[in-house]
Structure formats: C-alpha cells, structure tokens
Design a protein around this nucleic acid. Structure first.
Lengths: 127, 127
DNA sequence: TTAAGTACTCACATAAATGTAAGTTATGCG
DNA sequence: CGCATAACTTACATTTATGTGAGTACTTAA
C-alpha cells in the first residue's frame, strides 16, 4: 500500500502532472503490464488463460497488475455469474488507443536490444 | 544494490529478453528519466543545469539516474578537466533514436490525461 | 586564509514493488 | 458427502527504488 504522503509520492504526482510521457509510463510501467497488454491487444483472455501464458507470475501479482490496469481504464473485466467463475479481460477503448504506443516501444526494443545476432530485427516480443 | 539472484531479478531478465516493449520501458522507466531525457532531447546540459531544471530531485538520485542512462548507452557524459568541474550530458546516437518513442509516449499522455479541461491536447510535457 | 563554485560521494532511512505459500468461495457432479 | 474448478484473498517476507543530510576535492578569487 502506498502512503498518503511522502516525498516519493509527491514527486511522482508532480512529474506525472507536468509530463505526459511520465504519465504514460506510469500506466504501462508495471513489471508484467507490458506482457499482459501485449496479449490482450491480440485477444480477450480469461484469468486462467493469462495465468497460463505468463507461467512465472504469481497469482497475487497477476491480480494486482490487472486491478491497476482496470483502475486506470486500460482493460475491462467482465464477470460471468457462473460457478466455477469465469472472468474475461479485454482492452477498453483507451487501452486500444495504446496499441500504437506499445508497437513503437516494442519495435524500438526489438531493434536495439543487444542480441546474439541471429534474430535481430525480428519481432520477438511475446512473453 | 541489486542482489545477484532473486526471483524478482530472474523475472525481470526473462521478460526483457522476450519482450522488446519491456526492454524499452526498462531503459526509460526510472522516476526521473523521462524528465531528464526530455530535456536532453532539446539541448546538451551541464549537471548544474539539470539540477536547476529539476528542483525536486535530490542530488544522489539525479546522479543515479544519469549513471544508469549512461550505462545503458542513452546519454554521453563529457568531462572537462577544469576546476571548478564542468560536466556536460548529451544524448548518444542511441538516445537520439529514442526521440520518436518519447514523442509518442508524450503525445499519448498529453491527450489522455484527465485534465481540467482547458489545456487538453496541448503539449504540457515539460518537467 | 577563507570563501565560493561544481560535481559529485557517503551512510543512513524510508517507501514501494514484487514474490511465497496457503486459504477461500460457491456449486455441480459422482 | 466429498472433491474438483476458477478466480481470486490473505498474511507475510524479500528486493528494489527513492529520498535525506552532510561531507569531499580542487582551484581561483577576495
């Protein structure tokens, strides 16, 4: 949980208020958020599907990241009133509008990562 | 200092290896890095000038962020052998190649930040 | 001799992010 | 009844990021 006041938080808010770039980074900057968003750009996914696609993430963290993305309006959480439960995650319109941004980030990263040579310039983004 | 091994670090490395997007975010994702890069896109700056432009940052953190940017090859640190010291920071070619990316991030952020209405769609990025 | 200027470094402290392992809920099925 | 299933919670522990305040080095100018 974040404290209500701290220099750390103050700085974050001031920066985000003044700098659109920082604000964007804040929304997509969690450890697993790029991976999650990248998947959801392609298709709507259930919680269990996301979990399977991201084997290394712990459930707690997965839920945390999803909740933040939801809170920030980037993804939509649809609950089916069934048992066992079924929950689908998809991009909102705002999330969709990020596509270009994500693509630019992915391209730059794929091009400029020091690579073992072979796969350079290939779109390796996948995790 | 980072530990040599930890699940946290392992995950970070695995993600960056597989996901160009995450890799890019890693390079520009520090608290003050967007602000620093944004300034350096426009002009070469001395340490003291950066400090003056970013009044809220502590010197330790400023140096840390600069060192990381330098280590990642995004900025160049030029030391003039004078007293009192003079050090200039500028973008490397790699750093320059980020311009587009930074711009895209800034634009999206400026457009989609919930605003008080008036200044919407203006480039407010500045801090 | 002392102060001023510049670009730092250091020891310490706090805040935030991430990870672990086990438990919870509700219901249909055998 | 007892188990399986999906999507979580919870309490706790660790790792990483950020911030504070003071101090350093070297030279020139007052």
């Amino acid at each position: 949980m974040r404290k209500l006041t701290s220099r750390n938080l103050e700085n974050e808010m001031a920066i985000n208020a003044g700098c659109g770039m920082a604000h964007t980074l804040n929304l997509i900057g969690g450890r697993w958020k790029p991976s999650i968003l990248w998947r959801l750009v392609k298709e709507t996914l259930r919680y269990s599907e996301l979990k399977a696609l991201l084997p290394a993430i712990s459930e707690r963290i997965l839920v945390l990241q999803l909740r933040e993305l939801e809170k920030d309006g980037l993804i939509f959480r649809k609950v089916y009133p069934e048992v066992p439960p079924k929950v689908e995650y998809s991009l909102t319109a705002l999330g969709e509008s990020l596509k270009t941004v994500l693509q630019v980030l992915a391209e730059w990263g794929d091009e400029h990562r020091e690579d073992d040579g072979t796969l350079l310039h290939e779109q390796t983004t996948q995790l």
